[in-house]
């Protein structure tokens, strides 16, 4: 390789740019500038090819042994996670739909129950009301009857008092005319008069 071409220049201890550059091979001139295309310099090819192969082999093992399996596992893991998360999201969505249905069901149930309770309450209240009204009616009727009796009593006593007064007055009048009042006669007359 390049060793053969450069072997002849291996003189040691030579100073000066002219000789030094000659030692570097035929591709560099005295000022360190390139002679021709550096890419085509045969002295340098072997070096580059050797180090390139080393680089490629090292890179290949780095990639094939460590980097690529790791990235592949990360990617597949992420794929799995995404799939799982999607499934979980789907599950949660179904559960939320379910929950909404249950909520609606509960709402409807509650509404019908409330209707029933309202109707029952209404009926109860109606019944209580009717009872109260009936009780009040009977009470009123009782009170009315009582007061009618009282009125009748009062009237009877008032009539009695009138008869009494009339009998006494008649007896007094008869006495004033000088007669003697027959108590039984006066009383019967007065009675018939008052009744009349």
């Amino acid at each position: 390789m390049a060793t053969e071409t450069t072997a002849g220049h291996g003189i040691e201890g030579v100073q000066g740019s002219q000789l030094a550059s000659e030692m570097a091979g035929s591709c560099v001139n005295a000022d360190g500038g390139a002679v021709g295309l550096p890419q085509l310099c045969g002295d340098w090819m072997g070096n580059q090819i050797f180090w390139l192969i080393v680089t490629l082999v090292v890179t290949y093992f780095i990639l094939a042994r460590i980097a690529l399996p790791r990235i592949a596992s990360v990617l597949s893991e992420r794929q799995g996670t995404v799939t799982n998360d999607l499934a979980a999201a789907e599950d949660l969505r179904a559960r939320s739909v379910e929950a909404e249905e249950a909520y609606n069901q509960a709402l409807a149930d509650a509404r019908t129950e409330a209707q029933a309770i309202i109707a029952q309450n209404k009926a109860e209240m109606q019944g209580e009301l009717n009872e109260a009204i009936k009780r009040a009616d009977t009470e009123i009727a009782a009170k009315t009857a009582e007061s009618e009796k009282a009125i009748a009593e009062i009237r009877a006593s008032a009539l009695e008092n009138v008869q009494q007064v009339a009998r006494e007055t008649a007896a007094e009048i008869v006495a004033a005319f000088g007669g003697t009042a027959d108590e039984a006669k006066v009383s019967s007359v007065v009675n018939s008069r008052v009744k009349g």
Partner: peptide, 13 residues
Amino acid sequence: GDTVSWYTPTNAT
């Protein structure tokens, strides 16, 4: 050094 043998560490290396 001046010689570039196939094993020499160079700027390419």
